[in-house]
Deep mutational scan, measured.
Amino acid sequence: TYTYKLTDEEASRRAEDEWRNRGYDVRVRNNNGTWEVEVR
């Protein structure tokens, strides 16, 4: 499981799409203004 911490929502969406396209399960959540993109 990888977790990315990003401050930019758009960057988190791009990361989400990119990993999803590669067949990974992705979750995005906002934690106090930081976007966490979790990849498994």
Rank of each mutant, 00 (worst) to 15 (best):
T1V: 14
T1Q: 08
T1R: 10
T1I: 13
T1W: 15
T1D: 07
T1F: 13
T1G: 11
Y2K: 10
Y2A: 07
Y2W: 15
Y2R: 12
Y2L: 11
Y2T: 11
T3A: 05
T3F: 11
T3G: 03
T3W: 09
T3D: 03
T3L: 12
T3N: 05
T3E: 04
T3V: 14
T3H: 07
T3Y: 11
Y4P: 03
Y4Q: 04
Y4C: 09
Y4H: 04
Y4M: 09
Y4L: 11
Y4F: 14
Y4N: 02
Y4A: 03
Y4G: 01
K5H: 13
K5P: 06
K5G: 06
K5R: 12
K5T: 14
K5M: 13
K5V: 14
K5N: 11
K5I: 15
K5Q: 13
K5D: 07
L6A: 11
L6R: 02
L6N: 05
L6W: 09
L6K: 03
L6I: 09
L6F: 15
L6D: 04
T7W: 13
T7D: 14
T7A: 14
T7R: 13
T7Q: 14
T7N: 13
D8Q: 04
D8G: 06
D8F: 05
D8P: 01
D8H: 04
D8I: 04
D8N: 12
E9L: 09
E9V: 07
E9T: 04
E9I: 07
E9S: 05
E9Q: 08
E9F: 10
E9H: 06
E9G: 05
E9W: 10
E9N: 04
E9A: 09
E9Y: 12
E10M: 11
E10C: 14
E10D: 11
E10R: 08
E10L: 10
E10I: 10
E10F: 09
E10V: 10
E10A: 13
E10P: 08
E10Q: 11
E10W: 10
E10Y: 10
A11S: 12
A11H: 07
A11Q: 09
A11G: 06
A11Y: 05
A11P: 03
A11N: 06
A11V: 05
A11T: 09
A11K: 06
A11D: 08
A11R: 05
A11F: 06
S12Q: 03
S12M: 14
S12N: 02
S12H: 03
S12I: 07
S12T: 12
S12D: 02
R13S: 05
R13D: 03
R13A: 06
R13Q: 08
R13I: 07
R13H: 08
R13C: 05
R13M: 08
R13T: 05
R13N: 06
R13Y: 06
R13V: 06
R14W: 08
R14L: 10
R14H: 09
R14I: 11
R14D: 06
R14Y: 07
R14T: 07
R14G: 05
R14E: 08
R14P: 02
A15G: 02
A15M: 15
A15K: 11
A15W: 11
A15S: 06
A15V: 15
E16A: 15
E16R: 09
E16L: 12
E16N: 04
E16K: 06
E16S: 12
E16P: 03
E16I: 14
E16W: 10
D17I: 15
D17L: 15
D17N: 14
D17W: 14
D17A: 15
D17K: 15
D17T: 15
D17E: 15
E18W: 15
E18D: 09
E18V: 12
E18S: 10
E18T: 10
E18L: 15
E18R: 10
W19G: 01
W19D: 01
W19N: 01
W19P: 00
W19I: 02
W19E: 02
W19F: 08
W19T: 01
W19Q: 00
W19Y: 06
W19V: 00
W19K: 00
R20Q: 05
R20T: 07
R20V: 06
R20K: 10
R20Y: 04
R20E: 03
N21P: 00
N21M: 12
N21F: 08
N21A: 14
N21I: 09
N21K: 14
R22V: 03
R22E: 04
R22W: 06
R22C: 08
R22A: 09
R22T: 03
R22Y: 05
G23I: 01
G23T: 00
G23A: 01
G23V: 00
G23L: 01
G23Y: 02
G23M: 01
G23H: 03
G23E: 01
G23K: 02
G23D: 01
Y24M: 04
Y24G: 01
Y24S: 01
Y24L: 04
Y24N: 01
Y24W: 06
Y24D: 01
Y24T: 02
Y24C: 09
Y24F: 12
Y24K: 02
D25I: 13
D25P: 04
D25A: 10
D25H: 12
D25K: 09
D25T: 12
D25L: 12
D25G: 05
D25Q: 13
D25F: 11
V26Y: 01
V26P: 03
V26K: 00
V26R: 00
V26C: 00
V26N: 00
V26E: 00
V26Q: 00
R27G: 05
R27N: 11
R27M: 12
R27D: 08
R27H: 12
R27K: 13
R27Y: 12
R27C: 13
R27E: 12
R27I: 15
R27Q: 12
V28S: 05
V28A: 04
V28R: 11
V28H: 03
V28L: 06
V28K: 03
V28C: 07
V28Y: 04
V28P: 00
V28W: 03
R29I: 14
R29K: 10
R29G: 05
R29P: 02
R29W: 12
R29C: 08
R29H: 12
R29E: 06
N30W: 14
N30R: 09
N30E: 13
N30V: 11
N30A: 08
N30M: 11
N30Q: 12
N30D: 08
N30F: 15
N30L: 12
N30I: 10
N31S: 08
N31W: 08
N31P: 02
N31A: 08
N31Y: 11
N31H: 10
N31M: 10
N31R: 10
N31F: 11
N31V: 14
N32S: 07
N32C: 15
N32A: 08
N32E: 09
N32Q: 08
N32W: 03
N32G: 11
N32M: 08
N32P: 01
N32R: 07
N32L: 06
G33P: 01
G33N: 05
G33V: 01
G33A: 03
G33D: 05
G33R: 02
G33H: 03
G33I: 01
T34P: 01
T34F: 13
T34D: 07
T34E: 10
T34R: 07
W35T: 02
W35I: 04
W35E: 01
W35N: 00
W35H: 01
W35C: 03
W35F: 07
W35K: 00
E36M: 09
E36L: 12
E36W: 14
E36A: 04
E36V: 12
E36K: 01
E36I: 14
E36G: 00
E36Q: 06
E36C: 10
E36P: 00
V37L: 12
V37S: 00
V37W: 01
V37N: 00
V37H: 04
V37Y: 02
V37F: 04
V37R: 00
V37I: 13
V37D: 00
E38F: 08
E38R: 06
E38A: 06
E38M: 10
E38D: 06
E38I: 14
E38Y: 08
E38T: 13
V39R: 02
V39G: 00
V39I: 11
V39Y: 02
V39K: 00
V39D: 00
V39F: 04
V39Q: 01
V39S: 00
V39W: 02
R40G: 07
R40A: 08
R40D: 06
R40P: 04
R40Q: 08
R40W: 14
R40F: 13
R40H: 08
R40K: 10
R40L: 11
R40C: 13
R40Y: 12
